[in-house]
Design a protein around this nucleic acid. Structure first.
Lengths: 245, 245, 245, 245
DNA sequence: CATGAATGAGTCTTCATTCAT
DNA sequence: CATGAATGAAGACTCATTCAT
């Protein structure tokens, strides 16, 4: 009986905690890391201000938890998927699938991860950059293995390949997050998913097209002016000083 | 004489302005958008506190200028490059090259763009998200044209292709920004540049490998449990409430 | 039977109450009046958070109880002692003795009284300042009586004499509380006790020393500069504003 | 010219700083250490909230400065006085005089020092307890010297003597601070000053009174019940639990 | 133009107090 | 009686922005 009561207590606490976490994701996805105020989270969760501090030590820990819980779930499913698939290509498709499915089920959450993970400068309680790096390093093992079996081009760096895969995925999702692509129905999402995977595997050029032999690699890019940085061009906005003229 | 004096004045103003802008980039790349205080920028630029407000209306405009000036230079060079190249493949390589060269010349500035552009929630004076979208849309024209000429796979969405290209580029650079890849010398950077372009064009799978016919597209991904969001897993950090147990 | 149960209940309640009070003294002597949180008291007492509020209306009442109970015990013993002693000098020694014995038996409690009684600005539920005044006024009666019997110097104000007595006692104990004097063993304490009493009675100057006739009383102190307050000297710490220079 | 401007600047800053410090003393003496809010200080000083933080790093530093500046001025005058006086007795009178004069000129400031110095539990930025101890140790040198010259009773501990002197002074002033003695005019204050000094030097007992031989020292005080602490008596205030009965 | 002192609104965080179980 | 989750008011601190010199 006491055990049951305790269990219920624990469950209720877990629920509360999850409610607040969920609310944080919500506010977060709307206002971003720094625009997110504790007061907003509390209101969104429908709890009192102080209760947030009952469940999370401070703002940083709350936000950290948002990342950690979201990211760990993603990594978990990623690992699960990788172990399930058989061929290299299916594994790649599986990885892409996990990411897109995550977005299908929880676009807000994915938005938060995409817009924030690895973006904040180091200094937060937990090193989010490393969380990101970890996943890439993990994926690079997959490519390493594939390379040894000849399923990957010989001159390809596994780490860079992994990086690119996630880059393509991330940007594919970003297109939806930013509203560049509209998520009318799941079919659009599914099609994008497949395309990302296939492009990564076989490229955008139709099979059989001969490779351009002239400018393969190492070309110095003449378009870039040395000694000039990208801030050298004038801003189009007018400052007070400029308005004077 | 007066004209000359005025011109010098103006030049000095321009210099000041650029100095501050440059300082903003510096502080920015170190502390991020929100961790950056006006005082920091002023100190970095070696000017008085209030002077920043003489050249920029407010913090937002300063940050906006940082983005705009950096981004417009990038877009400019991108356009220039696109018009110069001849074949589709070279254009793609050119786009990748412009991005990597920018990083080579001004890693700090690129870091700022990568870590912040499109990450801040809409609400700033200028919609940075749209700046980003604009470039992608611009690039998609290139893919549209290529598609019509048969240089692009028939079932490929030009917009999505453009998105993926920038995704791969961005993530490739992110690998350097985050320190995942070490920028010992330019050759590492150059190799990465080439690999990003080639992968995008022809994929990671060696030419001649038969395509896996069974799981091409539209497969439902069985690994994803419906009705479960990514925040459902418990956070490993202990809250005050949890510590009780 | 029910009566016995009730009595036991009551006893248990009393115990609880005393436990909490004791814990409050403990926390108090460590963290001081304002650094003391209800949570700390509860933890120290080993009871639940809310239970403190079952026994004490609020924090103020708890603190008030700490003072009152401690103080009333002290006053009680003081009165008892005063009525027991016979000669004036013994009464003085008795008063000093009660104070030092209290410290011997409960240094923590005395520390709290010394460091807090009369220090808090009036405003608490009970006027602790008045509690203090009451004791002094009580003692002044003793001096009044002594004066009438010629046991006290004729030009001595009884109220001021009483004040000084407690001042010497308090500061003597403060020396221990602050660690200025080390309470290795009770003999140090006993010696201090005797010295306080004797000094108060006969002064620090050896008997028979002629009194300095020139500067007895009423001398204007030339060392004090008029119109200058004690905050006029510069603080050695540097402010942000000062660091500028 | 520039130098003059700078000097003026500096002076103005100093003034501001002093104004705030002065305001802090004011608020402080009214509300005590912890009741003192930055907002109050700012209002009292007639400056904006944030300006307090321009001159003082944080609340602690402000309060610390209040103590330090006040205390250092006091110590300074004390030292000055000690070096000026000639005989031991005059030195003692001088020390007492400095304290009483300080009160005459700035009762508020002295109140703050009396009520707070050495009372707060250690933990503040600066160790106020040690500031207090330092003065006592300093004074004990004076007594040490006097003892060697035979101006102090042979069985008297110099450190304890110093402690008692300040105890008598402090409590004498406390009598005024608490309103026990009314500071109608300076004569009351002057009389108290003289009495404190003389009592310390020669005691309260009229010269020529024989010393009570029976109960000089070392007597165990039978009035104190062993094993019983001063919190054992019941508080007269009623708790919720007690009200039940 | 340049300077940096002055302003004060906006947030985080703490903690006394209440109350449902 | 006992518990500790829930509440929210209070106050410290930051920092963008203004303005007098």
């Amino acid at each position: 009986m006491a055990a049951k009561a305790l269990a219920q207590q624990t469950t209720r606490e877990q629920d509360r905690r999850r409610t607040i976490l969920r609310a944080a994701v919500e506010v977060f996805s709307k206002k971003g890391y720094h625009g997110c105020r504790i007061a907003d989270v509390a209101r969104e969760a429908g709890v009192a201000y102080g209760l947030v501090y009952h469940y999370f030590k401070n703002k940083d820990e709350l936000l950290e938890s948002v990342f950690t819980s979201g990211w760990s779930g993603f990594v978990e499913r990623l690992t699960e998927q990788a172990s399930k698939s058989t061929t290299f290509e299916d594994r790649v498709r599986g990885v892409v699938g996990v990411a897109f499915d995550a977005y299908k089920h929880d676009p807000r959450g994915v938005k938060v991860l995409i817009l924030e993970v690895g973006r904040s400068p180091s200094g937060g309680a937990v090193n989010r950059g490393s969380a990101f790096s970890d996943v890439i390093r993990l994926a690079s093992l997959l490519f390493q293995e594939a390379k040894e079996k000849g399923h990957l081009k010989a001159d390809m760096d596994p780490l860079l390949a992994a990086t690119m895969l996630f880059g393509a995925i991330e940007m594919g999702l970003t297109a939806f997050v930013l509203g560049l692509l509209d998520r009318k129905d799941d079919s659009v999402l599914d099609r994008a998913r497949d395309q990302v995977a296939e492009t990564f595997l076989r490229g955008v050029v139709p099979a059989g097209t001969a490779q351009d032999p002239t400018s393969r690699a190492g070309q110095a890019n003449p378009a870039v002016r040395s000694k000039q940085t990208w801030t050298s061009s004038k801003s189009p906005t007018k400052s007070r000083a400029q308005r004077r003229a």
